[in-house]
Computed example of a mutant assay.
Amino acid sequence: MLFSLPLFLAPALVAAHGAVTSYEIGGKKYEGYQGFSPVAGAQIIQRQWPDYNPIMTVTDPKMTCNGGTSAPLSAEVAAGENVTAIWKQWTHQQGPVTVYLYSCDGEFTACDGKGKKWFKIDEMGLWGDVLNSNNWGTALIYKDLKWSSRIPKTLKPGNYLIRHELLALHQANTPQFYPECAQIKVTGSGTAVPSGASLTSIPAYAAQSDPGIMVDIYMGKGTSYKVPGPAVWSG
Rank of each mutant, 00 (worst) to 15 (best):
D144C: 03
F108L: 05
F177T: 09
T21N: 10
G229D: 06
S133V: 09
K156A: 14
V58W: 02
P72H: 04
R47F: 12
P50K: 06
K221N: 15
E24K: 05
S133T: 09
L199D: 10
A182V: 04
I162D: 12
K185M: 08
P230G: 08
A16R: 07
D210R: 04
A10S: 07
S133L: 03
E107H: 06
G27F: 03
C111V: 10
V227S: 02
S149H: 06
V58P: 00
S4F: 11
G27Y: 01
Y102F: 15
K29G: 03
G235Q: 08
V83W: 04
E31R: 09
V77C: 01
S189K: 14
G229H: 00
A15Q: 13
D60L: 03
D60S: 14
C104A: 12
L7T: 12
K88T: 13
F108C: 12
N134A: 13
F119W: 15
E76I: 04
K143R: 15
M56E: 14
S74Y: 15
A85T: 07
K28H: 08
Y160M: 08
S209A: 15
S74R: 01
A172E: 06
T84H: 03
T191W: 00
S74E: 11
G67L: 01
V83T: 05
V186W: 02
G235V: 02
L167I: 15
I184K: 02
D216W: 02
I44H: 02
I217Q: 00
W49K: 11
A16K: 05
K156I: 04
S4I: 10
F119C: 12
K117R: 15
P179Q: 07
L5E: 12
Y218V: 02
L73C: 08
L101K: 03
A19Y: 08
Q46Y: 03
P72R: 11
Q93R: 14
V215C: 03
A182H: 05
P179H: 06
T91C: 04
G125Y: 09
Y102H: 14
N132C: 05
L13W: 07
V215P: 02
M124Q: 15
D112G: 06
A182Y: 01
A192C: 14
D144G: 00
K221D: 14
P61T: 09
I184Q: 07
G32F: 06
V215D: 00
L155A: 13
N159C: 04
S224G: 10
W118F: 05
W127G: 03
W233Q: 05
Y142R: 12
Y23S: 03
F119D: 12
P38Y: 01
Y23T: 07
S195A: 15
G220W: 01
T91R: 10
W147I: 06
H92I: 06
M124W: 08
H17Y: 09
G190D: 09
K88A: 15
W49D: 13
V186L: 01
I162F: 09
Y205E: 08
Q183K: 09
T64K: 07
L7G: 10
G68R: 00
Y23A: 04
S195V: 11
A231M: 07
N135P: 00
S195Y: 11
E107F: 04
P179I: 04
A78R: 10
